[in-house]
């Protein structure tokens, strides 16, 4: 992460729900291969930040650039096609579709013509999914759905991932599996921004932390410097 040029640059980003401003000039950068933990309490603006980067919420000020291109005004699908993957907080799995079909929705050809992720490669990273390829997603547990949500995003062969609370509501055993899977992805060179309230989980994966409070950045730096009380 040292010296590498940032692939994602969030610059003084503002956002509002109706009249209520919820993000106040949020800035941070993500280097290639780096993982950032976006932390803060419920309602601090983590989800809003990720949604605004992804174009799901209109930025009322500031900019987002990705791979040296201004993507602030682009539509979500255009941003996704440029290589930014997004797995939302509530997973938003297509529960009427099977595991295979969910993956199919996310499928996009790999950039640069490489082999990229295929269902088989993903089933190796998320072994639980392999056994239920033809199962409807509605019949899966929360942990399995969370893995499917990430696998589905990976099918688009993204350069960087935005993960909103990947460990939320998961049993401790599953959290460990999730951490393991994300570490493998990290080792493959994927950059990630994960919004996270679970301190231990974040510490295991992230290189740096960005602490949000009331919609503004309060702290950027090593995770160890964050007081544990700030996590709740």
């Amino acid at each position: 992460m040292t010296g590498a040029a940032p692939i994602l640059r969030v610059d003084r980003l503002c956002a509002a729900y109706g009249l209520a401003q919820v993000l106040f000039e949020v800035s941070f950068t993500l280097a290639r291969g780096e993982t950032i933990a976006l932390t803060g309490r419920n309602g601090a603006g983590k989800t809003t930040t990720l949604k605004t980067i992804m174009g799901l919420l209109r930025a009322s000020g500031g900019s987002v650039s990705f791979l040296d291109e201004d993507v602030t005004r682009l539509k979500p699908f255009e941003i996704a096609r440029r290589g930014l993957g997004y797995a939302p907080e509530d997973r938003r799995i297509f529960t009427d579709l099977t595991v295979d079909e969910n993956l199919e929705v996310g499928r996009r050809a790999a950039r640069g013509g490489g082999a990229g992720f295929t269902p088989d490669v993903l089933f190796e990273i998320f072994p639980n999914l392999a056994e239920m390829r033809h199962r409807r997603a509605s019949a899966m547990s929360g942990g399995e759905q969370q893995m499917l949500a990430i696998a589905r995003t990976l099918m688009g062969n993204p350069v960087a991932l935005l993960l909103d609370e990947p460990s939320e509501g998961l049993a401790p055993v599953i959290v460990d599996q999730m951490a393991e899977a994300l570490l493998r992805l990290k080792a493959q060179g994927l950059s990630m921004v994960l919004s996270e309230q679970n301190a231990e989980f974040a510490a295991a994966i992230a290189d740096r932390a960005v602490l949000l409070e009331k919609g503004a950045v309060r702290f950027v730096g090593p995770l160890g410097d964050l007081a544990s009380a700030d996590w709740f």
Partner: peptide, 13 residues
């Protein structure tokens, strides 16, 4: 184990 975690809930937290 299931909720507070190791650090939280201690006086320093």
């Amino acid at each position: 184990e299931v909720y507070l975690g190791r650090s939280a809930g201690t006086p320093g937290g």
